[in-house]
Nucleic acid binder design. Structure first.
Length: 476
RNA sequence: GGCCACGUGGCGGAGUGGUUACGCAGCGGUCUGCAAAACCGUUUACUCCGGUUCAAUUCCGGACGUGGCCUCCA
């Protein structure tokens, strides 16, 4: 089995060869904690969680380090804090915003079945590393101080733009931004900037007298360095981050440490649309993870985290995905059926069946694995115990099943107080079975209709003993 | 305006230079008192226009469409 991953840097799928198989290292850009995560934010979290699981499976859980940062210093955070807590001192307001947002983020991604990364470093805890990188860059002639800012000089780097595959000329031709007066070159970007009064601030590098704060891209270079070293294996994130964020991270790290590479493989997940349109607050289709889990705002239903996770994995991570209620309904139905069969199966001794592993190892072909699940399910239903075990293990491995019952998935979010209890339903079924035995169809149908009015659908079948047996499910 | 990605049947969604993936829905059937469920079977496709080729949905070029980046947005 060979793991193959698509690399944005080379634009091709290539065999994955870790720098050190005993210590496989992955960095994924995490949230800037200023607002609840939306469903688009969930995509990289889920996708790279699957990759994390796969790497642990292949190289051993103790030999994989997954770092996903929390960016807790940022202009947007400052703005949100000032807006939401105008009466508090800014730094206190910021702490409230970042703490609350981080807590909600963890609750959200836990519900989506994601493992916690090995390390979740915070930007504000890595200011010394950031300053150290800046000093190295200045020393190496890759950065300069101007008007209390430190800027990265893109002209000092030969390959600048190679990740995004655009030349400096192209970028300049397309630039529509006013060039700040402290920049030598239009494409130079901020490593450090002075803080306004009241804003978070730290002693500045580069001999700057006033206190300041880091520019955007620097925190990831600092945290990756601290926790993964100067070079590591995989760097992931959303495709929108390719430029400028990852390009600039790469530039900072490579120039500071004098390497040709920061990460060997750069992976980017595709974007998400909602009901065929781009997600935006003005269109009113902006949907957070929390809303999907806990409210009926989307698709008139609450959605179990496992359903959201599977709905995400149904599309290959590099493809665009259209997030629709129809998709969620389909996934909910399939997952509940799979769990029904998988729960009755004895798990296989192999953690991940070879068939599933091979598909997954081909650049994380999760839709291919979904096809395997359909096949396992079909074969399991016709009595194949091995297929049932494979279904069980693959669902578990993907993290789309964490021991819930099929009912918990299918009926998630329904208000139990609006539905008859199990005992109550049994109280209807028993007399109906008697009526059916007496061929009293009018009475039998009346009871069925009465339950239907209460949201319960009856299904008549035969039990293992060949006698009539009635089961039921909640109508949705 | 510059750069980039994507465009598969009603929907979702892989894949491949030549042998109708798969799932949902639909349709037909079996079963059932009826219905539902279950089971069996089954229709519909590769945006358009050129080129390469014995052969293209698959490779190349162009058009159109959608989306992304160039504006600290996954």
């Amino acid at each position: 089995m060979e793991l193959r991953l698509y690399n944005t840097l080379t634009k091709e799928k290539q065999p994955f060869r870790p720098l050190d198989p005993a210590s496989v290292r992955m960095y994924v850009c995490g949230p800037t904690v200023y607002d609840f995560a939306h469903i688009g934010n969930a995509r990289p979290v889920i996708v790279f969680d699957v990759l994390f699981r796969l790497l642990r499976h292949v190289y051993g859980a103790d030999h994989v380090t997954y770092v996903r940062n929390i960016t807790d210093v940022d202009d947007k955070i400052n703005a949100r804090a000032a807006r939401d807590f105008p009466d508090l001192p800014l730094n206190e307001a910021i702490r409230k915003v970042t703490e609350e947002t981080e807590k909600q983020f963890h609750a959200d991604v836990d519900a989506l079945g994601c493992l916690r990364p090995s390390v979740e470093p915070r930007a504000t805890e890595h200011i010394p590393e950031m300053r150290a990188i800046i000093e190295k860059l200045i020393e190496g002639g890759h950065a300069y101080v101007e008007q209390d800012h430190v800027l990265f000089a893109v002209a000092s780097m030969k390959n600048y733009g190679r990740l995004a595959r655009r030349s400096l000329d192209e970028m300049l031709a397309g630039a529509r931004v006013d060039i700040a007066p402290y920049k030598r070159d239009a494409m130079d970007f901020v490593l450090w900037k002075p803080s306004k009064p009241g804003e978070p601030s730290w002693p500045s590098p580069g001999g700057i007298a006033v206190e300041g704060r880091p520019g955007w891209h620097l925190e990831c270079s600092a945290m990756a360095w601290k926790h993964l070293g100067e070079q590591f294996d995989i760097h992931g994130g959303g495709i929108d981050l390719v430029f400028p964020h990852h390009e600039n991270e790469l530039a900072q790290t490579c120039c500071a440490f004098h390497h040709d590479r920061m990460a060997n493989v750069w992976m980017h997940n595709g974007f998400l649309q909602v009901e065929g349109e781009k997600m935006s607050k003005s269109l009113g289709n902006f949907v957070t993870i929390r809303e999907l889990l806990a409210t009926t705002a989307f698709g008139a239903s609450k959605w179990h985290g496992a359903v959201l996770r599977l709905a995400m994995l149904m599309t290959h991570y590099r493809q665009p995905i259209d997030w629709t209620a129809e998709r969620l309904v389909e996934v909910r139905k399939a997952l509940a059926e799979w769990i029904n069969v998988a729960a009755a199966a004895k798990p296989s001794a192999t953690v991940l069946p070879q068939e599933s592993l091979e598909v997954l190892a081909d650049d994380l072909n999760t839709p291919g694995v979904v096809t395997m699940l359909h096949a396992f399910h079909r074969e399991a239903r016709s009595g194949n115990a091995e297929a049932a075990a494979y279904l069980h293990n693959t669902l578990r491995f993907l993290g789309v099943w964490n021991g819930e019952t099929a009912d918990e998935i299918a009926n998630y979010g329904l208000d139990a107080s609006d539905l008859p209890s199990r005992e109550e339903i049994d109280g209807y079924i028993a007399p109906r079975t008697a009526a059916r035995a007496a061929k009293n169809w009018d009475e039998s149908d009346r009871i069925r209709d009465e339950l239907a009015a209460k949201g319960i659908v009856l299904k008549d079948g035969k039990g293992a003993d060949g006698k009539p047996m009635t089961t039921w499910e909640v109508a949705r």
